[in-house]
Amino acid sequence: MKPFSYTRAESVRDAVAALMANPQAQLLAGGTNLIDLIKYDVAEPEAVIDINRLPLKEIVELPDGGLRIGALVSNSAVAYDPRVKQHFPLLSSAILAGASPQLRNAATTGGNLLQRTRCYYFYDPASPCNKRDPGSGCPAIGGLNRIHAILGASDACIAVHPSDMCVALAALDATVEVEGPDGAREIGFADFHRLPGDGPDRDNTLRRGEIVTGVRLEANHFAGHHTYLKLRDRLSYAFALVSVAAAVQVADGRFVEVRVALGGVAHKPWRDPLAEAEFAGAPAGEETFIRLADRLLAGAEGRGHNDFKIPLAHRAIVRALRQAVSGHPQDQTVKAIQ
């Protein structure tokens, strides 16, 4: 661990100023990922800016029936919030599928968005890694890549985003609220995380000095028809190999709207709105589920150890759509897959 200085930000403006003052500064919220990375010498901030006392801890109901979740609301608080459970049960379910109760108590909404990959090589400072050390190479390509990306990867990086919560937020078309030196702005969830391309060191589209202040959810019609299906190597306390957040609206046996977000398969929560749009009006049945899965995975590419993720993701999409359409979302406690 590299020593760092510590300051406590008293306001969002303070935090932004501190980030602008030192390019090697990092914000500390729940710390469940940053402290972990610092101890592994993967993150080496010169300055840590504690934002835990900023007034970003509220979940506020919006006039349109949506919610605004402050960046510092803990994952547990979001998951068990009655309003979230009632109107955005998909989000609650996805959060409860991730990490452990202790980690969820500490981890924050904003921090969850900024989680870094679990790629073995990224986490090992002795290994080359384009994400950690741009230009050094990607040993996961040709190496141990069982947990790596099958969609949207590049020759520079095949890492995946590890969050469960973000997969649900992607499916829910959340909006990320940020504040920076130039004031506040909003980023659509699909545009918040990025694909690796030739710059995998950047996980997201935040600009220098920007801080996530909250996540906004708009009212939707999915409360009864959704699921979060997470597949992993042990039945709890493990990152997803593949996860699917599905949210659908069905009328007369046909999809009015269908949304599918995938976790564990790409550098960002994976969605393909164009593909989804093609299935509006399609019968909400098995044949459609398969065609949609085919379509979503059309560009999937395995790297050897992770080849299995392509059929696994395909079957998981079909299963998740079945769960969502039938109105029987996956229970995160009962380990039988419904």
Partner: peptide, 25 residues
């Protein structure tokens, strides 16, 4: 224990990626 045989190094040297059974299992 997952070894990258190109380098001979164990890569999942932690309890997040070396899975032992958890309560739920």
């Amino acid at each position: 224990g997952m070894i990258d045989h190109r380098t001979g190094r164990i890569m999942n040297h932690n309890l997040a990626e070396y899975h032992v059974p958890a309560h739920a299992d």
